[in-house]
Design a protein around this nucleic acid. Sequence first.
DNA 1: TTAATAATGAGAATGGCTATCATTATACAT
DNA 2: ATGTATAATGATAGCCATTCTCATTATTAA
Lengths: 145, 145
Amino acid sequence: MLTELHARVKKHLRENDVRYSTGRQKFIAALHAAGGPRSATHLHTSELDDVPLSSLYRTLTVLENVGVLERTHDGDGVAMFELGEWLLGHHHHLICTSCDIVTDIDLGNDLENAVAEISATVAASHGFTMTGHTLDVLGLCEDCG
Amino acid sequence: MLTELHARVKKHLRENDVRYSTGRQKFIAALHAAGGPRSATHLHTSELDDVPLSSLYRTLTVLENVGVLERTHDGDGVAMFELGEWLLGHHHHLICTSCDIVTDIDLGNDLENAVAEISATVAASHGFTMTGHTLDVLGLCEDCG
DNA sequence: TTAATAATGAGAATGGCTATCATTATACAT
DNA sequence: ATGTATAATGATAGCCATTCTCATTATTAA
């Protein structure tokens, strides 16, 4: 729930000497409510429409640098922000190639372990030190399919 | 080899009423030699340094639209271009989080089938019509690790 | 309550990418 | 071969997401 999320973020920011202002709390709440990655423009025209774009980008960057947010990019290279994995849990994405909506999904233990093992195997065979993996499933969502 | 690649591209372009000019052949050769996704800027400062940026982007876009190239994005949202899967074969990426170099890898039949099956399973359970998947392995390359 | 420092707002500046338009090259018909 | 239609190219201006700068406001700590 949201209050626990705020507590975890607050503690993390405190440990990194970054303040958890009321403005920043709104960012966390908005991204938590979103349920998936969102662009700065999207946030600017919805939940955070009272925050100027420059402040919006700056705050998103601050939260990213401290590890609270993660930045990805959509098919057009536009930055998308979502809560970090350690807050949200490790997950993957279903990407609708028609409407471009991204949905967070959890593979479940068995499938997740399988993917992790495959990644580790192939990384090792190429002299790579694996630190993580990304699995996105592309297709058409229920509405578009 | 390169001549066979040129022949396949030429045929494909002909079927789509797009010419395979000598300039465009240089693009295919450059991306084939690269062995992984490359940015427009990278190409502009290496193999294709005699092609102005506007022409470079336009040609890359033309080749993308016709399906010869695929466009992805690096960690900063910068567009990266590589030969399409039907030319290069289905593959995945090892991404070094230190030097940002991306290496194409082939999982091999067994691992590839496993990933495809996992993706299909999770897509189906969410009402998704799967059309593809992306698996990137993050870590440190041999030089950086 | 004051001084030090962090956070915010507003607007300018940057950079990747695209659109425009004139020029050059290529393909096809005669 | 030669001319004509059309595609490809180059140069430049423009667009838009993102970042930078700097003045102002809020917050913390003594």
